[in-house]
Write a protein that binds this DNA or RNA. Sequence first.
DNA 1: ACACTTAATTGATCCACCTCATTTTGGTAC
DNA 2: GTACCAAAATGAGGTGGATCAATTAAGTGT
Lengths: 248, 248
Amino acid sequence: MNKRRETPLLKDHIEKHQCTIGLRLEMLGKAPFFKGLSADKLGMVNKYFNARHFETGEVIYFENDPATRLRVVVNGKIKLTRQAHEDKDVLIDILKPGEIFGTLSDLGDHTYNETAIAQTNSCVLSIISSDFRSIMNENATVAINVLDITTARLISSRENFLELSTLPVDKRIYRILCKLSEKFGEPYGNGILIQMPLTRKDLADMAGTSTETVSRIMSQLKKDDIIDTGRQWVTILNPDYIAHMDEG
Amino acid sequence: MNKRRETPLLKDHIEKHQCTIGLRLEMLGKAPFFKGLSADKLGMVNKYFNARHFETGEVIYFENDPATRLRVVVNGKIKLTRQAHEDKDVLIDILKPGEIFGTLSDLGDHTYNETAIAQTNSCVLSIISSDFRSIMNENATVAINVLDITTARLISSRENFLELSTLPVDKRIYRILCKLSEKFGEPYGNGILIQMPLTRKDLADMAGTSTETVSRIMSQLKKDDIIDTGRQWVTILNPDYIAHMDEG
DNA sequence: ACACTTAATTGATCCACCTCATTTTGGTAC
DNA sequence: GTACCAAAATGAGGTGGATCAATTAAGTGT
């Protein structure tokens, strides 16, 4: 077991000038919700979007703020959270490039129902939600794509609820690590590095537990050579164990 | 505190002959996902639907069954559940007339990810999901309506997750009773009756707890004259208490 | 290389809730 | 009314995980 001296996370190399018009168009073309849209329509649609850069830790919007915009991650990772009490938060999801967040509603009195924070330096496109609704009205394909994305998220959210209701904490954490490594994992050394800053608090807020409990479980996994972990990073050394811990 | 001798629930008066073509068309016209559709389009769309009656307790489909159809509740209540272990279930939602369930996906290898059971005698319309997708493709309004419904469900599911992660059991049960009375409540005597058969197990499966714990909490609420409850029914005597139990 | 800040670890205690076991009751069928 | 059965209530005991408190270690800035 080698002692690491520094974080294995890639340095944040996202800078403002990368959010160029060219990149933006390329991004929208690849975005799952615009799949099947013709090139000229894409060009038209592109004009509705604004790009903006966010520094790590910067809040994009707070829950209960008036909600007017739909956003798209171009670069970086965006964390969606909700606050319960004083220091009790719930981490709903972590988004990667191509994913959407914000609101689709065009009602005036509508508010965001989660807080969005840049987990890393990020570039985000935004569009006024009523404009996006117009686009959906004129292109049923787009509406159906967004519907498919939302349905998938609903299924995933219910899955989370199921796991929270029925699994003990350690299994919940295994499952979270498994899902994160599928979404954000990159080969690193002899394992898979979850490529993002990830604290014990983040994991606790995903699993509905305390940082201390997460720490204890992670320590045990480390002792058993199933993961390697340090300050704000995790690598999976034994993916098979993490994937099927049912019998454990 | 009067001792009730019999269930205050309305007798199930839904019978097969009520699922007539006339009722079906009326139902589809009022259904939120067809809001804004012209009368003639509605007539065309109607031809795709089949009606079927289900007896109380009858399973409409099981989770992991091949998924081919989207369904609409015409009459009665439908319970959506997922199985975890032996006797551990999670009650995801209870649907009332006008709500949709089943699948929207037209992929061949797709399966239902929950079990649907008739909570009362029910009448249900169904349509092959690929047909429904065609309808959405030709009528963006429909796609957007379904998207709005799905988004609302996603928000609600995340809300449930939040409550499950952060609230103690008693508060979770208060909240569930509050939501149920909003959705299914009907004035009855000096309170609001939740008009549906509802067991301690159902409540436990919603709150992620055990039947015994639900029973204990309900007993206390009854003692404090906040609710009245018997075998498979609940009335709320003090809605205000149930609605804001934050400070309790 | 140093000090400083914040994350992470680890230990000890406590209690909300689960589980198992038993009794009671409501609702139904005869 | 009486008998029956499944749902609900209640009791006793055990425990997973929270909470509180103190220590260690990893990055960061100078």
